[in-house]
Simulated assay, not measured.
Amino acid sequence: MNSVRQPAVAGSFYPGQAAALAHEVSTLLAEVPSHIGSAGPVPKALIVPHAGYIYSGATAALAYARLAPARHSIRRVVLLGPAHRVPVRGLALPDDDALATPLGQVAIDRAAVAQLAQLPQVVVSRSVHAHEHALEVQLPFLQTVLDDFQLVPLVVGHASAEDVAEVLERLWGGPETLLVVSSDLSHFLPYRAAQQADSQTMQAILRLDGPLSQQQACGGTSINGLLLAARHHGLQPRLLGMCNSGDTAGDLARVVGYAAVAFMEVDHAN
């Protein structure tokens, strides 16, 4: 019998009913300005935030709108995000056959998982995934902008940038494979201090200059691995937009930073 990881934050981070969720995601995507959205090359990799949609959904949509031209061609998504709930050493896959949201199920790419089986930094843990929101909140966007795709979901815990980069290299593939790193930026600084800190962090990302600390980005380990791989493959990053929770629905005294970044292959970049 197939095992399915059920949604943990439906109804809190995003709408719990399918119709309401589909409407919200479609609305967020429709509001992306055309010069940011489907204009330009399809990214090989994305950095997207993972807060509740009221806080960071509009920023995430800036990145996901860029996938529209590849709706039929992207068949595998390698999705990485930090462990918020259960600590883990290495990168954890779920012990499941699919991940569910109110929009349906996304199958795990078993062939890709088999490619990772011999890597010592990759482990399997259902408990790490069970209540983790960082990956889950990305799924409704992916289900909306892509057609038939499979998923390689990895919660990243205590690991090195090299550990992450090795996994990305193993699954790099061609245009059928998209890499997505789920990460917010600074946490709980005052509004102006957060703007300054996040701007410095973004300049480092755009220079492909790691490593980032966990204070700079909660998904810093995943980003660091992506930056290593991006340098190796000559990817060109582009900032699509950034803000913080003080700009959307939060208190200006303690904010969380968000950014959307697309990484393009240089041969096809603007």
Results as ranks from 00 to 15, higher is better:
Ala8His: 04
Asp209Leu: 09
Val4Ser: 10
Ala204Asp: 13
Thr201Met: 08
His129Leu: 00
Ala51Tyr: 02
Leu189Met: 12
Arg75Leu: 07
Gly234Asp: 11
Val255Ile: 11
Val48Lys: 07
His187Thr: 03
Cys243Lys: 11
Ala58Ile: 01
Ser127Ala: 15
Val48Ile: 13
Ala8Ser: 14
Thr27Cys: 00
Ser12Phe: 13
Gly257Lys: 02
Ala269Leu: 05
Pro120Leu: 03
Ala19Ile: 11
Arg192Met: 09
Leu29Met: 11
Gly52His: 04
Asp148Lys: 06
Thr144Ser: 09
Thr248Phe: 10
Leu212Cys: 06
Pro153Val: 05
Ser127Phe: 05
Ala61Pro: 14
Asp251His: 11
Glu31His: 13
Ile47Ala: 04
His23Thr: 14
Ile205Arg: 02
Asp209Gln: 15
Glu136Ser: 01
Leu252Ser: 12
Gln105Val: 13
Leu29His: 06
His50Val: 11
Leu135Gln: 00
Ser182Ile: 02
Val164Ile: 09
Leu135Ser: 03
Leu185Trp: 05
Gln138Ile: 03
Gly210Met: 13
Leu235Gln: 04
Ser199Lys: 13
Ile36Glu: 10
Leu146Asn: 01
Ala262His: 09
Pro41Arg: 04
Thr59Cys: 15
His72Pro: 03
Leu208Thr: 12
Phe141Lys: 08
Thr101Ala: 13
Pro69Phe: 12
Leu62Met: 13
His268Phe: 13
Phe149Glu: 00
Gly104His: 11
Pro82Asp: 11
Gln215Ile: 00
Ile223Lys: 06
Tyr55Gln: 05
Asp109Glu: 06
Pro120Lys: 03
Gly173Thr: 07
Val266Thr: 14
Val261Thr: 10
